[in-house]
């Protein structure tokens, strides 16, 4: 009787101990592999096998979503279409002006002897999945070492900066979002009269904090933050990528330092395609 009970306890305890040891070992192995810029075979195998399944399921779900959306929202779509047409006309005009200003700036820079960095090559990539945890802000893209993606490569979307590649397998890569609490980006206020420079740290939930600013720093709600090219997580972000908009500015009474809270320009949950800068 007593022997049966002790056997039953062992039957419950031993598997969990083995699994915890295996899980810990896998975690350590994975961290070590990522630090070397590679990935462990377990992660490689799981991502290689599951990525096509997730991609196909995503495509099917997306198609159903779009089709049902067209059926049920045709009037709303017509209104949205008209609004977007007006917006396109406005933006086209704005682009013409900016193009002209760009040409002028380029001419002045070359006259002053500035060294210009060449344009980055953009590699389009499909978003396979958005990270399932609330603690880490990551997404998985369908490009890997086979396409020339490396650890630290910068990932952007039309709306602005997405983040950087944290780890990479031959066919996929995990992107750590700029708003992840473990990341930081060298940032600058885009407004010509301000140009305040600082470091943006991720706060999670699509928000970032531009901290330790001088109390007289000219930062306002609504300001656009762009990458300063002056460092951050590995100093990998080139200058001029839109990070987000300032939503509030606070002052610490103890240190008199100001800090600004910004919202990431991109919406990770809605991203379908991104571009990897090489």
């Amino acid at each position: 009787m007593l022997e049966d009970e002790s056997r039953s306890i062992w039957r419950r305890i031993v598997p969990v101990v083995i699994c915890v040891v295996l899980g810990t070992g896998l975690g350590i192995w994975h961290k070590a592999a990522v630090a070397r810029g590679a990935n462990d075979p377990v992660t490689n195998a799981l991502r290689t096998v599951l990525s096509p399944v997730v991609t196909t399921s995503n495509a099917v779900a997306g198609w159903f979503g779009r089709t049902s959306g067209v059926l049920f929202r045709s009037r709303a779509l017509n209104r949205e279409n008209a609004r977007l047409r007006r917006q396109v006309a406005q933006l086209t005009e704005e682009v013409q002006g900016l193009r002209e200003a760009g040409i002028r700036a380029e001419r002045l820079e070359s006259a002053l002897g500035f060294i210009r960095s060449g344009p980055s090559v953009k590699l389009p990539a499909q978003v396979i999945a958005v990270g399932p945890s609330q603690s880490f802000e990551t997404l998985v893209i369908g490009r890997g070492t086979r396409d020339g993606v490396r650890r630290g490569s910068v990932v952007v979307a039309p709306a602005g900066l997405v983040g950087h590649v944290y780890d990479v397998t031959p066919t996929t890569a995990t992107v750590m979002l700029a708003s992840d609490p473990r990341g930081s980006v060298g940032a600058m206020v885009q407004r010509a009269e301000s140009r305040v420079v600082g470091i943006c740290r991720g706060l999670g939930g699509r928000t970032l904090r531009l901290g330790y600013l001088h109390r007289e720093s000219d930062v306002r709600v609504g300001d656009v933050l762009i990458t300063s090219g002056l460092g951050g997580s590995g100093g990998i972000f080139k200058k001029g990528l839109v990070i987000g908009n300032v939503t509030s500015v606070t002052e610490d009474p103890a240190t008199s330092a100001r800090s600004a809270i910004a919202r990431l320009a991109v919406e990770p949950d809605r991203l379908e395609e991104v571009a990897v800068l090489r």
Partner: peptide, 18 residues
């Protein structure tokens, strides 16, 4: 479940698994 989730959420594979 933890290993699969962790493989897609790279920074914390071990913590997810355990």
């Amino acid at each position: 479940a933890g290993v699969v989730q962790g493989a897609f959420l790279s920074p914390a594979l071990g913590s997810m698994a355990v």
